[in-house]
Structures are given as C-alpha cells and as structure tokens.
Design a protein around this nucleic acid. Structure first.
Ligand SMILES: [Mn+2]
Ligand SMILES: [Mn+2]
Length: 129
RNA sequence: ACAU
DNA sequence: CGATGT
C-alpha cells in the first residue's frame, strides 16, 4: 500500500555536481516541512543524504521515505560521503550530518525506500526531470 | 544493473 | 546526452 503517514524526502542537484537542494514533505498533510539550499558544489547523493538525516532529526517516531539507495546505504553505514572535489561548505554539511546521525540511534530502522514503481513519483520530488 |  | 553512487 502507498504510505499515507510519514515524511518523504528528496534531494536535487542542477547540474550534478552543482547547486543542491533538499526538502521534506509530510505524507499525512501534504505540507512541506523543510527546504534547504541551493548550495553550490553539491551532488545529488549528498542532497538526498542531508534530506534523510534532517527528517530523522525532526521526528523520533515517523517513518522516513527516500528514493535514494545510495543515501540509504550511507545512513545504514552511519556515514555520508562528500566527494573529494566538494567545497568546504559541502564537506562541512556532510560532517555535521554525520555527527547528527551518531545521535540518532538505530534510526536506519525508520528509513524506507519510496517505491515509485508501485506508488508513483515521490511527493517531495522537485519536478525538474 | 540497480537507484538517483 | 552528462553526472553521482552501491
Ligand atoms: Mn530523489
Ligand atoms: Mn526527485
């Protein structure tokens, strides 16, 4: 069944690498809960990762949905990765998200893949594709 | 080949 | 068509 409770997140980067943004939407209300960026010299995967960690940090109980298997793997592993070529600003965002992630014990258990084949486009999508 |  | 990632 298509989820109707939780927070769905998405990241965008135009171009990739380039200006990254990330946001989250409440599934129950359809309301946007947060939106950050644009930040230069980001990547798609860093944006997806920042979106997940922020969503986990604003709710202790809600399930978080993402369409990024890369960012899911980083959360499961407890560490997001900034490309060596990333700016200091982007590296710092990833460092700070990694520190935050340490405080969110077992948060990966609340993270699920948003299956667009079954459920359609991620409601937090930026609509740029 | 799968996900962005 | 190009890039980011497992
Ligand atoms: Mn996405
Ligand atoms: Mn999207």
């Amino acid at each position: 069944m298509k989820p109707s409770i939780g927070i769905v997140v998405d990241g965008s980067c135009c171009p990739n690498p380039g200006a990254m943004e990330w946001q989250g939407v409440c599934l129950a209300s359809g309301k946007k809960l947060f939106r950050y960026g644009p930040i230069r010299n980001g990547t798609n995967n860093v944006a997806e990762f920042l979106a997940i960690v922020h969503a986990l940090s604003i709710s202790d109980i809600l399930t978080i949905y993402t369409d990024s298997s890369t960012a899911m793997a980083w959360v499961r592993n407890g560490e997001g990765k900034a490309p060596a070529t990333a700016s200091e600003t982007v590296k710092d965002l990833v460092r700070r998200a990694n520190v935050k992630l340490q405080t969110l014990n077992d948060s990966y258990r609340r993270l699920r893949y948003w299956d667009k084949i079954r459920w359609g486009e991620n409601p937090a999508d930026f609509g740029r594709k």
